[in-house]
Deep mutational scan, measured.
Amino acid sequence: MTFKLIINGKTLKGETTTEAVDAATAEKVFKQYANDNGLDGEWTYDDATKTFTITE
């Protein structure tokens, strides 16, 4: 399955995708991506669209 991450950061904005077997796996990938890029914010997830959002 394809999951999307929408980034609404103070300095970084955009989106990225990952292929994962489930939402929990995708969340780990996206949280590592956010950590690697210095993002810290509030996370939301929409199961209907398989989309995570981080807002700083």
Results as ranks from 00 to 15, higher is better:
Thr53Gly: 03
Tyr33Lys: 03
Tyr45Trp: 04
Ala24Ile: 10
Gly9Ser: 13
Asn35Tyr: 15
Ala20Gln: 12
Asn35Gly: 06
Ala48Val: 14
Thr17Pro: 02
Leu39Ala: 04
Asp46His: 06
Ile6Asp: 03
Tyr33His: 04
Asp36Arg: 09
Gly14Asp: 08
Gln32Met: 11
Ala48Glu: 12
Thr18His: 07
Thr2Glu: 08
Lys13Asn: 09
Phe52Met: 02
Ala20Ser: 08
Glu15Cys: 10
Gly9Ala: 07
Val29Lys: 10
Lys4Val: 10
Glu19Tyr: 15
Ala23Lys: 14
Asn37Gly: 04
Phe52Thr: 00
Asp46Ile: 05
Met1Thr: 15
Thr2Gly: 05
Glu15Thr: 12
Thr18Met: 11
Phe3Gly: 00
Glu27Val: 06
Thr11Met: 13
Gly9Leu: 15
Thr16Gly: 04
Ala23Asp: 04
Glu27Leu: 15
Thr49Lys: 07
Glu15Lys: 05
Thr25Gln: 11
Lys13His: 12
Asp46Lys: 04
Ala23Arg: 14
Asp47Ala: 11
Phe30Cys: 01
Leu39His: 05
Glu19Thr: 12
Met1Lys: 13
Thr44Asn: 06
Glu19Pro: 05
Phe52Asn: 00
Ala26Val: 02
Lys4Ser: 06
Ala24Gly: 09
Lys28Cys: 06
Glu42Arg: 11
Gly41Lys: 01
Asp46Leu: 04
Gly14Phe: 14
Thr16Tyr: 15
Thr53Cys: 06
Ala23Gly: 05
Thr51Ser: 05
Thr55Gly: 04
Phe3Val: 01
Tyr45Thr: 01
Phe52His: 02
Gly14Thr: 11
Glu56Cys: 07
Val29Ile: 15
Thr17Gln: 12
Gly38Pro: 01
Thr53Arg: 06
Ile7Trp: 15
Glu42Trp: 11
Thr49Ser: 13
Phe30Tyr: 02
Asp40Gly: 09
Asn35Pro: 01
Leu12Ala: 10
Ala26Trp: 01
Gly14Glu: 08
Gly38Leu: 08
Gly41Trp: 08
Leu39Phe: 11
Asn8Gly: 04
Asp40Arg: 15
Glu19Arg: 08
Ala34Thr: 07
Leu39Ser: 02
Asn35Gln: 14
Leu12Gln: 12
Gly14Asn: 07
Asp47Tyr: 07
Asp46Asn: 11
Leu39Lys: 02
Ala20Val: 05
Ala23Thr: 07
Ala24Trp: 11
Thr44Gly: 09
Leu12Cys: 10
Leu12Gly: 10
Gly41Met: 03
Gly9Phe: 15
Thr16Cys: 10
Lys10Ile: 13
Trp43Ile: 05
Glu27Ile: 12
Asp47Cys: 06
Lys28His: 09
Asp46Glu: 07
Asn37Glu: 07
Val29His: 14
Thr11Tyr: 12
Thr55Lys: 05
Thr16Val: 14
Thr51Tyr: 03
Thr44Tyr: 11
Ile54Lys: 01
Glu27Gly: 06
Tyr33Met: 04
Lys13Ile: 11
Ile6Gly: 02
Gly38Glu: 07
Thr25Trp: 09
Ala24His: 08
Tyr45Lys: 01
Glu19Met: 14
Asn37Ala: 15
Gly38Gln: 10
Lys10Cys: 13
Gly14Ala: 11
Tyr45Asn: 01
Asn8His: 11
Leu12Pro: 04
Thr55Leu: 05
Thr17Ser: 11
Lys13Asp: 06
Met1Leu: 15
Glu42Met: 14
Thr17Phe: 15
Leu39Trp: 12
Asp40Phe: 13
Glu42His: 14
Leu12Glu: 09
Phe3Trp: 07
Glu42Lys: 13
Phe3Thr: 00
Val21Gly: 11
Glu15Gln: 13
Asn35Ala: 14
Thr53Val: 08
Met1Gly: 12
Ala24Met: 14
Asp46Gln: 05
Asn37Trp: 15
Ile7Phe: 15
Asp40Cys: 12
Thr51Gln: 04
Thr25Arg: 07
Ala26Lys: 00
Asn37Thr: 06
Thr17Val: 10
Tyr45Pro: 00
Val21Met: 13
Ala20Asp: 02
Lys13Ala: 07
Lys28Thr: 09
Trp43Met: 09
Ala26Cys: 02
Ile54Val: 12
Ala20Phe: 04
Asp22Lys: 03
Asp36Gln: 12
Lys13Gly: 07
Ala48Thr: 12
Gln32Arg: 10
Ala23Tyr: 12
Asn8Trp: 15
Leu39Val: 11
Thr2Lys: 11
Lys4Glu: 03
Asn8Ala: 09
Ala23Asn: 05
Thr49Gly: 04
Glu19Leu: 13
Asp47Arg: 07
Thr53His: 05
Ile54Met: 05
Ala20Pro: 01
Ala23Ser: 13
Gly14Ile: 15
Thr2His: 10
Thr55Asn: 11
Lys31Val: 07
Trp43Asp: 00
Lys10His: 11
Thr53Ser: 06
Ala26Asn: 00
Phe3Asn: 00
Gly9Ile: 15
Asp36Gly: 05
Ile54Cys: 05
Ile7Arg: 02
Glu27Tyr: 15
Ala24Gln: 12
